[in-house]
Each structure stands twice: as C-alpha cells, then as structure tokens.
Simulated scan of single mutants.
Amino acid sequence: MLRLGLLLLVVPAVLLMAGYMYDLSLADACLEQGGSWDYRAARCDEAGAAHPFTPFMVRHPLWVNGGMLLSVVGLLLCIAGLYRRR
C-alpha cells in the first residue's frame, strides 16, 4: 500500500509540472519569434494580435483537479501504509 501511495503522490505532480513546462515553453518560443500566443487555441498568432493570458488551471481544470485528487489519495495511502506497518 505504501508503494502505491508513493506512486500516486509523486507521479501526478510530476506530470502536471511537465505539462505546465511544455505549455510554457510553447508560449515562450512563440514570443521569441515575435508572435502572440493564443492560450485558448494553443497556437502562435503571427499577426501580432494581443491575446489575453489564461492560466493553466482555467484551460485544463480536469488535469489539475484530477492530479491533485490523486496526490491526496496517494498521501492518504502513504499514511495508512506507514501506520499499518508499526
């Protein structure tokens, strides 16, 4: 139970960070090219139109909320696994 808990505690957080960093790198590459990143459509607009910033949580609520829920379940499984061993 402890191993499953640790897996559920760590993997969703790492995947969320990887998704966020990938999204950030796409937007940064677009800005370096002189474009404007359209967060809603996830594409670079070369025309130079200004697009408003939309947070990652707003664009991917299921990923963020689901990942955090899995991490909390993993934490509870870790606590139960450590409690049961003693």
Rank of each mutant, 00 (worst) to 15 (best):
S71M: 08
P61D: 14
V58N: 06
P55F: 02
V72N: 03
R3E: 14
F56P: 01
Y22E: 11
L77S: 04
S36E: 09
A42Q: 11
R86F: 09
G19V: 06
L7A: 13
P12Y: 01
D23K: 02
V73M: 05
N65K: 04
V14P: 03
F53D: 15
Y22T: 10
W37N: 00
F56Q: 04
H51V: 13
W37F: 13
L16V: 09
V11G: 01
Y83Q: 11
V14M: 09
L9V: 05
V72L: 15
D23A: 10
C44H: 03
Q33L: 13
A80G: 07
F53G: 10
T54C: 08
T54H: 07
F53L: 14
E32V: 07
L76M: 12
A27T: 09
L77P: 03
A80V: 15
R43E: 13
M57E: 14
V10R: 02
A50H: 06
W63M: 09
G81E: 04
C78Y: 00
A18P: 00
L76V: 15
S25V: 10
A41P: 02
G35H: 02
L6M: 11
R59T: 13
G48S: 10
G67P: 03
M21L: 13
R40M: 11
L8I: 06
S25D: 11
M1Y: 03
A41E: 15
A80T: 15
L77Q: 05
L24S: 12
A80Y: 08
R84C: 11
H60T: 11
F56T: 03
V72T: 12
S71D: 00
P52D: 14
M1L: 12
P12V: 04
I79A: 15
M17R: 07
A80S: 15
L16I: 12
G81Q: 04
G35M: 05
D23G: 11
A27M: 08
C78R: 01
V11Q: 01
P55S: 12
R86Y: 09
G5E: 05
M21K: 06
R3P: 06
S36K: 02
P12D: 06
C30N: 07
H60I: 08
G5L: 05
S36G: 11
L82E: 10
N65Y: 03
D45R: 01
R40C: 07
W63V: 05
G81R: 00
G74I: 01
V64N: 00
A18H: 07
P52K: 06
Q33N: 12
L16K: 02
R3S: 14
L75S: 07
S25N: 10
A41L: 14
L31F: 03
R84D: 11
L62D: 14
V11S: 03
G5K: 01
N65Q: 12
L16W: 02
L9F: 06
W63P: 01
G66C: 11
R3Y: 13
Y22R: 09
E46P: 03
V64F: 02
L8C: 10
M1H: 05
P52Y: 01
M68D: 06
E46D: 11
M57C: 08
G34A: 09
A47I: 07
L15P: 02
Y20D: 08
L6T: 04
T54V: 15
